[in-house]
Structure formats: structure tokens, C-alpha cells
Simulated assay, not measured.
Amino acid sequence: MAQINAAILGAGRIAQSMAKTLVAMAVDERYRDLVAPYAVAARDGERAAEFAAKYGFPVSYGSYEELAADPNVNLVYIATPHNFHAEQAVLCMRAGKGVLVEKAFGANAAQSQEMLDVSAQTGMLCTEAIWTRYMPSRAMIDDIIASGAIGEVQAIEANLCYPTTAKARITDPALAGGALLDVGVYPINFIDMIMHNAPIARIESSMQPFETGVDAHDSMTFYYENGVMATAQSSILCHSDRMGAVWGTKGYLTCQNINNVESIDVFDGTHTVTAHYDVPAQLTGYEYEVAAAAQAVLDGRTECAEMPHADTMRIMKLMDSLRADWELTYPFEA
């Protein structure tokens, strides 16, 4: 294979964002020889056909099984609610397709481990589509910290909140709804990327529930063994500034929008801006994860270096532990 035929499983909002990405990559000189938009599948054939016609995909299917059976598909982007990811990723991998699974990777660690076990059994790529892990801003933040510009890191703060309770999926426990898996995963990953898998000594957290029982607003504090203290907040009730900050002994840095970092400012101890960094222009932001996944398929790898299986499982286990503290379970976990 010299080019990866990419397919989208699901036809909702996030699937549309991926479709725009694949179409843009197909005409971009950096990616056009790597990825081709090929097919989309939905549970309704008419909806899938309309989706394919809108974005110029040559093939559409009215069932996920038909998509998995297509021998021309190399990589499938799983764009359905969290609780369906494991079943659908397993279907695709057993049919010989690599999978790029939208975050949160699964509804819980058990589902996530099932996917990774099948990846190992089949030799198929299985990687989590949490786009911030693949973006250039990740290395930019690391480089600033490594330069010593802010001194020794002592604390980290990150938040991501959107009022999304009007969306049925977000408030439905049966679909693994709530703030944690939908938006909380981003501040948690922002902190984890900066800490580079450092061990956590203890966690303190609290949750405000929505009327349906899902978590509506979460507050989490991670105390690392090396002394760093990190706080994260997420919510489906309100807007927040979406900021991320790293505080050090000589100064600090701030990141505009941790969900897709737009710029980074570095401050000294007098709160004076000493450096400003703009993040490189992007197609949509999703192209980085697609390119990494496509190259991994070509290389015959089962994981991407940007989000290896060990990191996915660590984050999923962390979120399971938070829900255990909140006594929050989903109906399908009973």
C-alpha cells in the first residue's frame, strides 16, 4: 500500500469534522499521497449516502458490518458514543482494519483492555484519537519547560467546560454521558503530557451530578510523588476560559485553549511576557492524528508513539478511579 483508504464509522457531528479533515488532506501536498477519503457507514443507509455525497466520499454503507467487510478499507475512524467503541473497534480489527478510536477510548478500562487485546491478537493498529496528543503544541510546551524559562515546575492548572446539556448523548448514562469522558479527558491529558507519566501519590476530587445521574461538573487535584500539584476542572454546565497554565520557580506559561492550543505565552517572575508562540496553521487539527495512524498502518504497527497503549490504559484507569470515588457507574456496567 502506498496510500491509506480511510473510512468513518458513524455520521454525527464529530464524523463531519473528520470528513472535512480527510477531504482537506486529500488535496494537501503534505498528505495527499498518504490518505484518501473512501467510505462512511451509518445505521441508516440513506443518511450514510447523504453524508458521502456531501463530502465526496465514493462509498457509503447502511451498516457497520458492511463497512468492516469492504476489503478496500485500511483505516476506520470510530466516531460513535463512548460505550460503542469497543464493540465496533473489535469488529473492524477482526476484519483486518486499523482503527482510530475517538476519545474517550472506551467507557471504562475493561472495554479499553478488550480493544488492545484484540489489537495484539490481530496485529491491527488501535490508537486513541485524542487530537491534542498528536499536535505540534505538545512539543512546543515541552521545549519551553526544558529550556528552563519558567524554572522548576511546581504546579499545573487546566480546565475545559462547555454548556452541552441540550445534547441528549451528553446527559444519557446509557451512552456513558457526563463531563469526564467528554471534556474532562482533555485537562487530564494536558497535565499528563507535561508530567510525562510521573507517578501520582494521591488524588482528591469532587463531582456535581446532573439530574440524570451523570457527572456535570468535576474538580480533580493530582498530587505527584515529585511534589508537583496539578488541578483540573471540567463541566457540561458552563463556559470556562479553557486555559492551561504551568507554574514554575522562575515564571510560568499559559496556553490558550487546551482543547486545541492556539498560542503560548511565557511570563517571568514580574508577570512580564518574555515570549509568545503561535501554533502552526492547521487544516482542522485532526490531520495530525490521521497522518500518524495512517503511517502506523503502513508500517505495520499496532500503536502510535504519540498515544501508546500504555498511556491510553493509564488514563482510562485513572478515570475509572475517579468515577469509583464518585460512586458513578453506567447502566451497562451493572
Score class of each variant (00 low, 15 high):
T212Y: 01
S205V: 01
G177T: 10
V183R: 03
Q233K: 13
A95C: 07
N259E: 09
I170H: 15
I4V: 13
S206C: 07
D320V: 05
A36Q: 15
K20F: 05
G227L: 07
W131E: 14
P81L: 02
G251H: 02
T254I: 14
L67Q: 14
N83W: 04
Y38E: 08
F267W: 14
L100H: 08
T80P: 08
A41C: 08
G151C: 04
A334V: 11
E87V: 01
I144H: 08
M243N: 11
T302Y: 01
A216P: 00
A198T: 12
E306H: 14
V273Y: 06
A168H: 09
R314T: 11
Q208T: 10
T80Q: 09
M25V: 05
T171W: 04
Y223L: 13
Y162K: 05
Q208I: 09
S263M: 06
H271P: 05
N5G: 00
Q111K: 11
A86S: 13
V40I: 09
E289W: 04
E152D: 14
D44S: 11
W131Q: 15
A230P: 11
A15G: 10
T254A: 01
M307V: 09
T80K: 07
Q295K: 15
H276D: 07
A110M: 08
Y223K: 11
V261R: 00
M195Y: 13
I170S: 12
D182V: 07
S63C: 01
I194T: 12
L9K: 10
I170P: 04
T212W: 03
I141K: 10
E128N: 14
V279D: 07
M25Q: 01
F84W: 12
V118F: 00
Y286E: 12
P308C: 02
A245L: 06
S240E: 00
